[in-house]
Design a protein around this nucleic acid. Sequence first.
RNA 1: GCGGGAGUGGUGAAAUGGCAGACACGCAGGUCUUAGGAACCUGUGUCUUCGGACGUGAGGGUUCAAGUCCCUUCUCCCGCACCA
Length: 830
Amino acid sequence: MSTTHGDEEREHAAYDFAYVQEKWLPVWDELTPFKSGRADDPRPKKYVLDMFPYPSGDLHMGHAEAYALGDVISRYWVQKGFNVMHPIGWDAFGLPAENAAIKRNEDPRIWTYENIATQKASMRRYACSFDWDRVFNTCDPEYYRWNQWLFLKLHERGLAYRKDSAVNWCPGCQTVLANEQVVAGLCERCDSAVTKKKLNQWYFKITDYADRLLDDMQQLEGQWPDKVLTMQRNWIGRSTGANVQFVIEGRSEPISIYTTRPDTLYGATFMVVAADSDLASELAAGTTAEKDFKAYVEKIKADSDIDRLATDRPKTGVFLQRYAINPVNGEKLQIWASDYVLADYGTGAIMAVPAHDQRDLDFARAMKLPVRVVVETGEDDPNETGIATVGDGVVINSGLLNGLNRVEAIAKINAQLENDGLGKSARNYRLRDWLVSRQRYWGTPIPIIHCEKCGEVGVPEDQLPLTLPDATGLDLKPKGTSPLGAATEWLNVICPKCGGNAARDTDTMDTFVDSSWYFLRYPSSTNNEEPFSRKDVDTWLPVDQYVGGVTHAILHLLYSRFFTKVLNDMGMLDFNEPFTRLLNQGMVVMDGSAMSKSRGNLVRLSDELANHGVDAIRLSLVFAGPPEDDVDWSDVSPSGSVKFLTRAWRLSGDITSAPGIDFTTGDVTLRKATHKALNDAAFAVESFRFNVAIARVMELVNATRKAIDSGCGPADPATREAVEAIAIMLSLVAPYTSEEMWERLGHKPAVALAGWPTVDPALLVDDSVIAIIQINGKIKERIEVSPSISDVDLEKQAMSHPVIVEALQGASVQKVITRAPKLVNIVINS
RNA sequence: GCGGGAGUGGUGAAAUGGCAGACACGCAGGUCUUAGGAACCUGUGUCUUCGGACGUGAGGGUUCAAGUCCCUUCUCCCGCACCA
């Protein structure tokens, strides 16, 4: 490529993207076309939000795709005349920074802020339409101060609490993990096998909101991908059933079990309690089974989650030498302890109905326990097949329930249990409370002081932010307890309540706390009085369009929805769902699999940008296919994008008419193509079919090329109209090229603010259309007709067409379906 | 196992129940060129007796009409993981 930039030379060569990029960046810095929230801005508002990045090095291909898509949407609404807020910030706390700090033996702040600077510069070059005045980082004390404030509010409301429990422990990261961060038994971050550890930890009581998190999803139907809604529903996992009391021999209190199938109560042939529950130890205590039980518990503790996940894992357990009495028939049932019952779901105890539950059947067969069929489903006897019959059927062997179907039987037995004080209907959730403590340095300190006399005392609001102690001198290496515990000066404090000696909580918050409300902060990003102002959220929220990866379908979105509902209850917001519309973009992969250094299929964004230019890369990503599908970089053609952009750019140099010329006198055929493209592209963008929108622009470029070379010519007003429309439409995806085109067309920057041209409906009507004539659904002929032709006239023309007359010889017409102006279908006897 | 999604040319993909393959990539041929990895033009689903016929994973159904709706089935991808 030439290094000199004479105008004439550029005119004839493929246009020089590097030169154009350097040319426009300072101009845009000056113009700030995407600044939002100017006091006198009369435009209606829209909030378009991209999920903020984690600053782990420079931007990669995945960022390039996500931000290109968010930009199309944001820039589109700007062109449509909206005051769009499109902010960005950094999700800057977390383990990678801490691990880098350990490796480099320096403060994690250095690595973090360096990477933020790098990414920021890359985003500017990538021409993201961000409002740079609203930037913040979650590791700024001005931000995390409000994490602490919110924590205290949750604490006040009883929604932040501590409890002892067996938590997921990652031996690699040396920290606890939320349920959500354990993927198939492995740590989401480092892939270590997760183990259990009994610890006292902070939780957020998200389970209090389980029903609302489920029910409010109705509002999101059709606005969020179904996939995400389904994943959230499954994750919350509401089940309805009944708690039933079983009297235990030699125990004063009965045991409550949870079942979704109270209709099968007569089929219960034994009881199982979770082996790792307190209940199990209590029942085993003092029995002849105690020794075996203890050995069993030791054995299963040694098993990792991985072992537990094996689907064909044989059932194991210990008979506790204790008996329960079935409340419906007085039968004596053996009580077993097993690890296939979970201690923290329901009551940690179940009635086993082996005939109609596969797990119970597997256990019964392993332990030679009886199996009794109480639902006649028409399937083979589970005693023989080893396959539990779980389908609907008629209840049998069940006293007064006999002859009923499932729904009737459940209603009847529930009513009776309730009446007898032996049970009642109940709900359970798969969702557990959100474990937020982390034993790491690089996060928000939990603003609680532990006083021997006063217990948990919140750090007074006027002392926030409680900043992290200096990292120098602290050993950040994971060792199972928080590094903050070693910062003695920071740690030891006076109790704000009683003035006695006390100590700070040494844990930091899960970084998902940071991202659970950041979208509320952008409109008030410089507010030092409160996390966000009521006026700002009322103006801008909820987010109109959220764009991000499906990797956050459960965690981040669920937590954000939870926070929004809590803040709504606190009266700080008047909406209860934060994200009105959600778009999940796919991943960028290479040769069919995710890019990674070790796989050797890493495509570096910086290389691609250097080779093809920003616009071509953005275009390639957006044009590759539907935004939610993965893009395989080996399938796309950045050089094809360069070719197209050059073609479009060249058009702008061909126009010989002056800017401001009256388009209405222009060539009608080309004008129609222009208006159709504008109309179709807008529709496509609004329905997230960006690849189709680009196809429409390509068609218009082709039509305009033809018009200039062999049609109405470069001086025709319609040609200028077409090229201006192309520049404006291209501004959504190729900001540099379109700005350059706009200038060559005689306009001042920024093309981003030019406005989407108004579509003339009269120009959307074709002079004539092709109607197809079918006989029995097979196309026989095409005729050219007026688009306003009536059904009657179209049918008349079709029936008298020579080809049709010929084809209808000797046949009897049964029916004629006419859909003017597109189709006539003649149904005949054949 | 449960839940969700997807299967269309050589490739990425289009298609309010109404002309399947728009728009591209790739490939082939051509024009212009000292040259072409530039630009422009033409062709490009399969079969064909050149009339047409067939064609959206497979099989059935609804309909005047199905890639699209319904049922069955196969394959692939994603999520969950003993939740009673």
